[in-house]
């Protein structure tokens, strides 16, 4: 997922084709990909930029609108709401996934019982392979105020559940919880893979120097895991920032007081329900700018913070 410049050049053993080498062979091999790339990615990317300067409803002829769509963005309270919801969701998602995924991975990594470890790994990963459509429909029932199991068992231990998807204070929290259930297995797998690269000798050395479990975790495991944690954090943020499926399925209109309206959902509403193609394109440009910023930040922070062995 990371595109450092070194990944682009062919490395030390550059292919020396020589002057006699026919370069049309190379073009022939990459041409299907390049054609599809131009038609479905590069072309649409440029088209989205151009469209953002127009006003168009897909039916009547388009009109040049200058920077009108962009000035509209600055004074659009619904866009602000969608952006703040999305940032809250993404930050909560990163924190809960990283903490949960790391603790679960450390726990499973220390397990000695093979069968139990298999059970835990499988049950953590199960939800991740299911489509969001099925997950969202299922959780609408799981959190139902009358017959949902969460409501029932929380009631048994004396906790009164809110009406999750009706209450504007709780709707986004419910989506955060559902997202955790669905994707923590992914974070867990990434963390587990990272943990297995931590040399056991270092941990044993720290232990024989008298460190307790917590000190080993905090001073040895975490620093050595920092590249993995960082990577998982970025991936989680980017995925969470583009969250659409569950919010659209569970709260198709953006929830009570737009409390679950996310930026991609707003883009969808503007583009495909209100047919404000120009404005939707401007919003999509904003999403792209934020993604690009996060990626740039990834490189910058990554170089500063991440411990490299």
């Amino acid at each position: 997922m990371t595109a450092a410049p070194s990944l682009v050049s062919s490395g030390s053993r550059a292919n020396t084709g020589g002057p006699g080498h026919r370069s049309w062979v190379g073009y022939a091999f990459v041409s299907p990909a390049v054609l599809l790339f131009v038609v479905f990615i590069l072309g649409p990317f440029v088209a989205a930029i151009i469209l953002s300067f127009y006003s168009w409803d897909m039916l009547t002829p388009s009109k040049f609108h200058g920077i009108g769509n962009f000035t509209k963005m600055f004074s659009d309270p619904t866009l602000y709401k969608a952006l703040s919801n999305t940032f809250i969701f993404a930050i909560a998602s990163v924190v809960t996934h990283l903490v949960g995924g790391l603790l679960l991975a450390v726990g499973v990594n220390r397990m000695t019982n093979k069968a139990l470890s298999y059970f835990v790994r499988t049950s953590l990963f199960f939800p991740f392979v299911i489509s969001w459509a099925a997950v969202a429909l299922l959780w609408k029932y799981v959190l139902d105020p009358t017959f949902g199991i969460v409501t029932y068992y929380l009631g048994q231990i004396g906790i009164n559940s809110p009406n999750w998807f009706i209450d504007p204070h709780w709707a986004l929290t419910a989506i955060i919880g559902i997202d955790w259930w669905h994707t923590v297995g992914f974070t867990f797998i990434i963390m587990l893979a990272g943990l297995q690269t931590v040399p056991t000798e270092l941990i044993e050395a720290a232990r024989s120097d008298g460190c307790n479990g917590w000190q080993v975790f905090w001073n040895v495991t975490i620093p050595l895991m920092s590249p993995t944690i960082f990577f998982a954090g970025i991936i989680t943020f980017i995925g969470a920032f583009q969250i659409f499926d569950p919010v659209q399925i569970i709260t198709p209109n953006g929830g009570p007081n737009n409390s679950t309206l996310t930026i991609v959902m707003y883009l969808y509403q503007q583009g495909f329900q209100a047919f404000q193609v120009g404005y939707a394109s401007a919003v999509s440009l904003l999403v792209f700018a934020i993604m690009a910023l996060v990626t740039a930040l990834q490189f910058w922070l990554g170089r500063k913070w991440v411990h490299s062995a």
Binding site: V39, F45, F244, S284, M291
Partner: peptide
């Protein structure tokens, strides 16, 4: 182009 989110290209692709 990996940085370009699919939601950005979807409107032009829809028109296409």
């Amino acid at each position: 182009a990996l940085m370009v989110p699919g939601q950005m290209t979807v409107i032009p692709v829809f028109i296409l």
